[in-house]
Write a protein that binds this DNA or RNA. Sequence first.
RNA 1: GGUCGCUUAGCUCAGUUGGUUAGAGCGUUCGGCUUACAUCCGAAAGGUCGGGGGUUCGAGUCCCUCAGCGACCACCA
Length: 707
Amino acid sequence: MNKAFIPSEWEEKLYSFWEQKGYFKAQINKDKQPFSIILPPPNANAPLHLGHAMYVYEDIMIRYNKLLGKEVLWLPGADHAGFETQFVFEKNLQKQGKSRFDYDRETLFTMIWDFVMENRPIMESQLKRLGFALDWEKKKFTMDDDIVKIVYETFKKLHDEGLVYRDTKLVNFCTHDGTSFSDLEIIYREETAPLYYMKYGPFELATVRPETKFGDTAVAVHPDDRRYKKWIGKEIEVTGLIETFKIRVIADEAVDPKFGTGVVKVTPAHDFNDYEMAKRHNIPLKQVIGFDGRLNELTGPYKGLKVLAAREKVVEDLKQKGLITKIDESYTHSVPTCYKCGRVIEPLPKEQWFVKVRPLADQAIKLVEKGEINIYPRRFKRGLIDWLKKFHDWNISRQIVWGIRIPAWRCSKCNEWTVTSGEKPTNCLKCQSKELVQDEDTFDTWFSSSQWSYATLLTQDHHSQLSNLNSQFYTYFYPTAVMETGYEILPWWVARMIMMGYFATNKVPFKNVFLHGMVRDKQGRKMSKSKGNVVNPMEVLDKYGADALRAALIFQTTEGGDITFSEDKAVGMRNFANKIWNVGRFLYLNRNGKMKEENGKSKKKLSDLHKEFFQLKKKSIKNMDSYNFSLAFDTLFEFLWHRFADFYIEELKEEVRSGNIKVLEGLEEVYLQVLLMLHPFMPFVTEAVWKEFHGEEKSILDMRIEF
RNA sequence: GGUCGCUUAGCUCAGUUGGUUAGAGCGUUCGGCUUACAUCCGAAAGGUCGGGGGUUCGAGUCCCUCAGCGACCACCA
């Protein structure tokens, strides 16, 4: 044995060994209890960041359960990450002086496909470097044909059962990226903006968006507001910029009499609250801003101006006409922005596909409340339920090419939609016309990934389909044991997987949810490119080894809490890996000692050691089983280093050196069992020692933790 | 405004159902290259466990309250 554990001499070798010998391969084994985890598929086109290394929790669970004798499956995958990827790709195009508009749909799609396929192996090889016991033969890509097929079948089933519908509604639209988003993909940003007070017929009202004036279709006041009571239900005449127009005054509870003047202009086509108000009062929509972010033909001389330019000009002109009475420059409010490009989101009316969320979410709430799905750490249960309660109908249409195209065709004669599970319909279901045009849009990536847990398992059998849930592999491993992921995607993914999983399979997609926190820098700040504090997991790995990186993310942390990562910690854990190695080396080097009778002193020490170890093992198993992995690891660390090495070995050192075989065997027995318990956390060093002790062809993964 | 979390040694953090002199990693001081390991060993300094109140034989651990910090969400004409 080397004097020190050198990770680079072992890691690649050991991983290939595990893979080649099929240790990560899952198969149906009726005699064993299944334990399955689906890896949250990392973005196929991007290298891993430190957050991905947190999936080490999954590896810990997988390896631990394997050592308990279960049939384990950890299924890897890659995410096409629709908009994310298209966004990155467009940035690359930009650098070459090109844009998405320079290519037709097919060409652009193919270019992105090639780009993603080229990058995908990077992410995959990084998962291997982390030592993850993934069953690579079963890997899936979110755009694999068979996965897409399942997504289509789910979509059709939803449509058939009235849980997906087509409608024109106000959606969040990014005029720069040219696509709509769901509610989750917008970020509200605090902003100080002028609040303009303007004359409006007999009223005065306040607005931050004077340029939407052309889209006003009502004026609203609070029903109990004495100042304006006499106007309610009446039409008023307003001097505008283009013309003088008449507009109705409505009364609505949503108006806050204390804000501004207590009068609101209602612009249903460009404001979510106004849209709701308009629905309540049956007021028409008038769209004056287009999907290009410019004012349209209904705005006369302002046509063609971008929103901000239009605002300036409108204000200028209103001033000229003496219609602006006051400007509050210190008004702060939050504006919706695109989570990706940061530009202001424009609420616009658009015809899209929506998931009718309430029935699905209500069902999901029941499942969580009843404990059909357990959440760890427990405090996230509340958050999950809150999210599920808040969900509104979900816009799943995206105006991007990089994604799964929606299997819906519109009839050019009668305008009716025909939804299929993928194949082009021969004729319109309503009027039989054969002139059908497929929807240009693609699915929200999260719509397809909400189906990931059953789609990945179903598709392991070639001819499986949603209507026939009898495939063996699926039946054996579904529902999966645990869904492990970062708490920040609870609403995006976990909540929706529960909804869709239960809808499609009538079973929960997983029995347990385990959530980990975010990795922050040493000062506790979020890691971001702009702050320059991003830690590349591969660099840490190169420097200190995979075991050290993994352990650094677990050691003395709290499950679900954010983790401050510092290189110091990796150093400490590299040292621990070396300690594990050297304890082994000490025992190994003394193995050739001559037989010798034990004396009383060592007998007592050995029995103390065994007692202590028995307690430790009980405690560790209890902690592992209750998802307190960090505590289990801390305990093992403390025991091996400060009890086993610093105390027991030191006490018994002379005995060992002088060849007391009983003492050596006693120590070795405990040591090897500790290795077994440590293996899920630090798989490389433990396996390396195991091989040194038992031979190159042996693996610690053949061992079982016994009670 | 809502929900959740955090406040323990110089720094970063553990401390599971309340129980003996409160721990770790890194750092600091002193002493050791002892043939497993200097990626080490031994010793030491360093904490009124955010403030206050309560429950209890006993509280860092439970309850109330105050303060500070943070995250997420909602509203915003």
